[in-house]
Structure formats: structure tokens, C-alpha cells
Amino acid sequence: MNNSRNAIDVRNVTKVYRSGSLEVEALRGVTFTIERGEYVAIMGPSGSGKSTLMNVLGCLDRATTGTYLLDGIDVSGLDDNALAQIRLKKLGFIFQGFNLLARTDAIKNVALPLFYAGVPPRERTQAAIKQLEAVGLGDRGKHKPSELSGGQQQRVAIARALVNDPAVLLADEPTGNLDSKTSVEILALFERLNAEGRTIIMVTHDENVASHAKRVLRMLDGLLVSDGPPAPLRHTEGDSLIKS
């Protein structure tokens, strides 16, 4: 932790994929900062580099060139284990497909990051129950993912992302697998978390989902092409948030 107000500081980041003689420039020099407490949506057409950027931001992949400071820490040159440690301590992931462990109940799923952090079982369970209560699933702790609805599963995933008190929440199409009513619930939960001071970065291709964020980064061909407030809503939320 440092005094900088930036949760994310990305400078001239490029990412080049090489497969044989073929080179794909997925990111061609991206520079931006995200302050603590911001709620940012990343948008852009398919193939524009959103996932690549999210992988770099999520410390799952390294930029080819450029620097990346996460919560004031330069993570550009870190090795696999150090990056794993950063993910463990600084980041919370929310996936489109929830990605919960199927044969494990909600409490154990939420406690998983603490398991890898070496927190003793009793404390883990207590912290997990607290997070499940915070997302409104205090009574579902013993349920397996198959016994939960999509919206409930995503809330378990959000509780899991929050359990290590991360500096940044990263969500990749978090409502992509949900119906419109449930999407509204999840987005409301995001807004509440943001109001409580969480930094949230969310990839979406849906303008109406993006409109919940306070800031939208638009990408095209590996470049950042616009940075500003979301476009105004065209429809009422309930109608437009159709299942993607």
C-alpha cells in the first residue's frame, strides 16, 4: 500500500501474442489510471483486446512492454509465484460463468482464497459466512452450487472475490449468464459495494450494463479510444437488460 490514490496505473502497455511466425498485437500501447473507489466499465467490439487487458490487470498474464502498478506495486517484472501472491492479496475475480467449485458448498467456495493464504479453518469459515451475509446469502452457506440459482451462484462468487479484502474487483461479463432481473440485482450489489469504497473494473459489451458504471473505457484494435462517463440510457433498465 502507498500514498498514491491510484488503484491501477497502466503505462504504454503492449501485449504481443506469438504463435509460430504469426504475431498478434492484442494491446498496442495502453495508458490509463484508475483511482481507488472508481467503478469502471471496459467496452469494445470482439477482438479489441478487452480480455487481454483484463488478464494483464488481473496479473494472470504479463504485458510484453510497459509498466503496470497495482495498488502502488510494480508488478511488471514479477515471477509466477509473486503474481499468484498478488492475485491472492490484491485482486478479486468475478467470472461470467461463476466458476465455483461444483462439489464444494458455498462457505468452502468463499473460503478458498483464505485456504491458499494459510488462514486457519475456523477463521476461514467465519470470514466466509460474514461475506455470504454481506451478499444476502447468509442462509445458503451449506448449499452446493447446483442447489443455487444463477444469481445466487454469482453472489457466492462475489463473496469469494471479496473475502480477501482486495484492492480491485475484476469482473468479466458478470451478468452475461444471467437473466435481466437477476442482472439488475447483481449490478445493484456492485453499486452498493462501490458506494462502500470498492474499486470495480467490469468488462461488458452491453451499454445498459456499462451505464451503471461511473466511467467507461472504450477499446478498438488494441488501443484505448475513449474514456468518459457512460452513454445515457436509451430504454428503461428492466426492458433492455436482456439475457446476453
Binding site: D80, N81, A84, Q85, R87, N99, L112
Partner: peptide, 16 residues
């Protein structure tokens, strides 16, 4: 595979 991916994304080290 996916489960292992999730575990790693969450912060599991290789050794773990």
C-alpha cells in the same frame, strides 16, 4: 482443468 484455473486465478501457487 477449469477448477485448477479458478484455483490459480484466486491465488494458488504452483506448489500448492
Amino acid at each position: 482443468t477449469r477448477e485448477i484455473g479458478v484455483r490459480k486465478a484466486i491465488g494458488a501457487r504452483k506448489g500448492q
